[in-house]
Design a binder for these strands. Structure first.
Lengths: 217, 217
DNA sequence: GCAAAAGTGTTGAGATTACACCCATGC
DNA sequence: GCATGGGTGTAATCTCAACACTTTTGC
């Protein structure tokens, strides 16, 4: 007889793709939720910090190591998993693109990115988790610089603005946005421009790629 | 052989007393940290949500039920407790006064309030926990109305301002503070005044005693 | 030439800060 | 009467939001 619940981690991995916010989903293989989608996760073994388990999980899913990872909160309702009482420490991660995705990860039958608006009914309490993660993401983008982890090393102001518009869900004034962002001194202009269908845009890079509190919006 | 760590909760219970921010400490009875001070806590039993364990723990320590309680974050370093790998879900609570304190709680040898500036070296990773709790408290007071849970039902603007000054650690302009707070509409003036050594002060009460996001500072 | 994104300044309104004097009470 | 906290208004500054036209490119 166990004295205390099991401990797991679950990770909501966000990216921006196709003009919207998406999260990585995996299909549950067995148990009462078999066939349903969920966020990737796994049990925390004795001797390993949950932060480490989350990093490991993330790496094995995306193959990417250079990501932003933050603890969200812990869900512990005894009925969240009907098979056993599992207390889950939830994390959210930001990655710069869909990447290759370990499409052949043996742990899950299927894995795919799904848009955050319009998620299906997920396994466990993961719809609750999705909501928490989204709230946190929105508020963190407003007062920290973590948006850098959603973007490649080189970016244009238009691309940065697009991300903000997608996540906070309303258009921003381009002139005010540019002025504010540049005034923060987080971006360094490069000597190059991005060429595309239209007028070339100045390329910038983040001067510091580490989390800091900054009033972005 | 366990598959997964044990789960516990720890609760940092704050109050304002004697003009400063204090937290409830208990003396550890046994193990490598015997005799050291720590925040109250305990193992989460199978079948009970950590939130419930925390509420129970809080009630048994302070005898008070009507408090603000919020999950902080989860600490899971395998070495935080040398006896076993215990993942601890940390909470912080706000109470309106020292209260009677269950001085005779059989679970701990001693229990006392200690000032947050000038904590001793605590058991486990509780100095880290103290720091997290303090940071969260400071930021939450700035953008929510939870200060109501640090104050009795009837209060003066002077008392409210004192709390803010203690916690953010700098003096505020009285006229600007009053104007801003009253403009938020969180306070309802009563027909009575508080009499003391000096000019009587208007008494107010919070119109809503439930957590809301409000820009207080 | 036209569609589409890039680039650029100014102005008005509202919010925030700084600041000084009188009032009521207990001792 | 004096020490102490309670109560009140205004002016200067800063911040934020609103807003339009020109440029460069690919097709």
């Amino acid at each position: 007889m166990r004295r205390s619940p099991l401990v797991a981690v679950d990770v909501v991995i966000f990216t921006i793709a196709d003009g919207e916010l998406q999260a990585l989903l995996v299909e549950v293989k067995s148990g009462p939720f078999a066939g349903r989608w969920a966020f990737p996760g796994g049990l925390v073994p004795v001797g390993e910090a949950p932060d480490v388990t989350a990093k490991r999980e993330l790496l094995s899913q995306t193959g990417i190591g250079d990501v932003y990872l933050e603890q969200l909160r812990t869900f512990g309702d005894p009925k969240r998993d009907p098979q056993a009482h599992v207390v889950s420490v939830a994390y959210f991660a930001l990655v710069a693109g869909k990447g290759e995705g370990q499409a052949d990860n043996p742990k899950y039958r299927r894995m795919q990115w799904g848009p955050m608006r319009d998620l299906p009914s997920l396994a466990y309490d993961h719809n609750l988790l999705a909501q928490s993660a989204l709230e946190r993401l929105r508020s963190k983008l407003a007062y920290t610089n973590i948006v850098y982890s959603l973007l490649p090393r080189e970016l244009t102001l238009g691309e940065l603005q697009e991300i903000y518009e997608i996540i906070i869900g309303r258009p921003l004034d381009r002139r005010n946005f540019r002025r504010r962002i540049l005034a923060l001194g987080l971006l360094r202009p490069l000597r190059r421009q991005r060429r595309g269908r239209h007028r070339p845009a100045q390329l910038y890079t983040f001067t510091r790629r580490e989390p800091m509190n900054v009033e972005m919006l």
